[in-house]
Amino acid sequence: MSDAAAAERLDEVRRRIDKAARLSGRSPGEVTLVAISKTHPAEAVAPLIRAGQRHFGENKVQEAAAKWPGLRAAHDGIVLHLVGSLQSNKAEEAVALFDVIHTVDRPSLVAALAKAIARHGRQPDCFVQVNIGDEPQKGGCAVAALPALLAQCRDVGLPIVGLMAIPPAGLEPAPYFALLAELARRHDLAQLSIGMSGDFETAVTLGATHVRVGTALFGERS
């Protein structure tokens, strides 16, 4: 992807975020665009960085560890988000590498992250992932299990800033986004990680503070 194409795609996505925010009475500055760079090599990511994008999301600890040290050395201000499921035995590496973790979803991971944070002295912001559509194949804690998981996070001092969810594919996402927003309000959490390339405008109108956009920025994967 050329620098010009990257800048054009980034401007278009930001324009759509701004429009959705203003239509819903929000400030566009309330919404963080996370460019989902998973599976894309460093040379595909660099044009977006040069265009001004600074928040990037990766699915796997190993891939991020291979890709981002060089990019971070070359560019200031990168904020790295883990948006894929995290194994408890990778918690140490995740805490060392990522600035935000979107997929806290079970007691064993909470315990592992708390130990890693204490050991490293780094405190990435964390979102609890909720399985908002009750889908057995998806990560995320069940809605009914959310209060207990949040209580555990508080007990061990895990810095939970909000909730994350991926609505069921093929269904209207708005009711699921609205339910997650209500759960966040109920538990006094200010941030919502919702919305991807196909539905981020809907997510913004329903309170998203972080939208996770890949295809609209990088194009379809081959």
Rank of each mutant, 00 (worst) to 15 (best):
V34T: 12
A35C: 14
I36D: 03
S37Q: 12
S37V: 08
K38H: 10
T39D: 03
H40G: 02
H40A: 12
P41F: 02
A42Q: 03
A42S: 13
A42E: 06
E43P: 00
E43Y: 00
A44C: 05
A44M: 06
A44W: 09
V45P: 03
P47T: 00
P47M: 01
I49L: 13
I49R: 02
R50A: 15
A51D: 15
A51C: 10
G52L: 07
Q53G: 04
Q53M: 07
R54A: 10
H55N: 15
H55M: 11
F56W: 03
F56H: 04
F56V: 08
F56E: 05
G57Q: 02
E58N: 04
E58G: 05
E58I: 05
E58W: 04
N59S: 13
Q62Y: 10
Q62G: 10
E63W: 07
E63R: 12
E63I: 08
A65E: 14
A66F: 13
A66Q: 15
A66V: 15
A66Y: 14
K67T: 12
W68I: 02
P69T: 04
P69I: 04
G70V: 07
G70W: 09
G70R: 09
G70L: 08
L71F: 10
L71N: 02
L71E: 05
R72L: 06
R72T: 11
A74W: 00
H75Q: 04
H75W: 08
D76N: 06
G77S: 15
I78T: 12
V79Q: 08
L80R: 06
H81T: 10
L82W: 07
L82Q: 09
L82M: 14
V83A: 03
V83Q: 02
V83Y: 02
S85A: 12
S85Y: 01
S85R: 09
S85W: 03
N89G: 00
K90D: 07
